[in-house]
């Protein structure tokens, strides 16, 4: 009971989601079965969305769920199913490769953790109490920001910042067009005619 009373719920949920995220990420790394990898990835990304919720970015979190988990992972599953053949096990890499990778990865992790923990201000918590979640309202601000109006910067003194010069209309438009092009391109690539070497030795025979 004592513990419950002093428990910081925010920390509890953070730890829960962080553990899930990292755990399933590691699961992805060490899993050999591609379907399991995709499944773990889903869970990892879903937990990560939980972290986003916790960090006061519910819109990004929901976006993560919708696009990553609902879209990308389904796409991955598609890829898995369309390219599946029996012997995934043959796609293991040699033990030596694992060792080198783990060493380099460990170094990288050490490097990143050092960098993350070095800065003092990143380690000092915010002094006020955590704001209640219900007050967080982000969708409108983000939408306005994407259309070039920074309602969150209205209090700033720099007129350039206030006027919406810091908005993201142009990147938003660029990225929209980019997305469209990518979708068209992906659809095109996925159904281009394929030249496959046929058994008869004629390399140009068309198999559609």
């Amino acid at each position: 009971m004592m513990l419950l009373a002093t428990l910081d719920w925010y920390s509890l949920f953070f730890l829960l989601f962080a553990l899930l995220t990292c755990g399933f990420a590691v699961g992805v790394l060490f899993s050999d079965n591609i379907v399991h990898m995709a499944f773990y990835l889903t869970l990892s990304l879903g937990s990560c969305a939980g972290l986003f919720f916790l960090a006061g970015a519910p819109f990004v979190g929901a976006m993560q769920l919708m696009i990553y988990v609902g879209g990308t992972v389904v796409l991955l599953a598609f890829g898995v199913m369309l390219t599946a053949n029996a012997n995934f096990s043959s796609l293991r890499i040699p033990r030596g490769g694992w060792v080198v990778s783990l060493i380099v990865g460990g170094l990288l992790l050490v490097l990143l953790l050092t960098a993350a923990l070095r800065v003092e201000s990143w380690r000092t918590p915010r002094d006020e109490a955590v704001l209640p979640l219900a007050e967080v309202q982000t969708a409108t601000v983000l939408g306005a920001g994407l259309t070039g109006v920074r309602v969150d910067k209205l209090h700033e003194d720099d007129p350039v910042t206030r006027r919406g010069m810091s908005g993201y209309l142009l990147p938003f438009v660029i990225i929209s067009v980019h997305l469209l092009v990518v979708l068209v391109g992906a659809a095109y690539m996925a159904r281009t005619r394929i030249y496959r070497r046929s058994a008869s030795g004629n390399p140009r025979s068309r198999t559609g």
Binding site: P58, G70, A139
Partner: peptide, 19 residues
């Protein structure tokens, strides 16, 4: 505040189980 979006996002996960 983004209930609708949440519902749509989570509902989209249902397909994952089916897959």
């Amino acid at each position: 505040t983004m209930g609708l979006f949440f519902i749509l996002a989570v509902l989209g996960l249902e397909v994952f189980g089916v897959i």
